[in-house]
């Protein structure tokens, strides 16, 4: 592709790695070369870099697609997902899944990223709802805001929740920060 095709969300291949353009700025001094100043994110490692391209340069578009798949199970070293239409199964290594593993409930819908047909990443929704399986009992009458206690959700992930949250209740969690958002009423 030509640099003039650069834009936000364009997917590029650099040194055999897929990148997505997350920020993009075009500047052009006088009658000179245009400069395309980009922030690009490695779609496998998540590392963000600054790169500037000049008009006239050429880029390699990355062959990246995303497919909706369901989480099935984990062996601890890898996580298995299934395409619910074709029943095709793919595995992602634990280090690629990273802390997202804390929120992988059975049958959860995720977007699996394929780069040159190879599964390379996982993108899950920004919020998930999970059930509290362990929590210290709340102290009656303590309604001070900002006071939290330790609790555990069904995947074993430990989280700080307000004192009023009880075992068996469901809570909304932000998967980007891992933090409690709110109680979900049935």
């Amino acid at each position: 592709m030509d640099v003039s095709d650069l834009r936000k969300n364009a997917k590029l291949e650099i040194d055999g790695q897929p990148y997505v353009v997350v920020d993009f700025q075009f500047v052009k001094p006088g009658k000179g070369q245009g400069l395309y100043k980009c922030k690009i994110k490695n779609m496998i490692t998540g590392a963000v870099l600054d790169r500037t391209w000049r008009s006239g340069e050429r880029l390699e578009a990355a062959n990246v697609e995303s497919r909706k798949m369901q989480y099935l199970y984990s062996t601890g070293e890898s996580f298995t997902f299934m395409d619910s239409e074709t029943f095709e199964q793919v595995e992602l290594a634990a280090d690629i899944v990273g802390s997202d593993a804390n929120f992988l409930l059975d049958n959860l819908d995720c977007d699996i990223l394929f780069y040159n047909e190879r599964p390379v990443g996982l993108s899950m929704s920004s919020h998930v709802v999970m059930e509290i399986v362990e929590a210290e009992p709340g102290v009656k009458g303590d309604t001070a805001t900002g006071v939290t206690k330790q609790a555990k959700v069904s995947t074993g992930y430990e989280i700080q929740v307000p004192l009023f949250i009880k075992v068996g209740e469901r809570v909304k969690i932000d998967t980007r920060t891992g933090a409690y958002v709110e109680r979900v009423n049935n």
């Binding site: 006088g30 009658k31 070369q33």
Partner: peptide, 10 residues
């Protein structure tokens, strides 16, 4: 010169 003036300007 075109490339120089572009890089220098920026």
């Amino acid at each position: 010169w075109t490339a120089f003036i572009s890089e220098w300007s920026d």
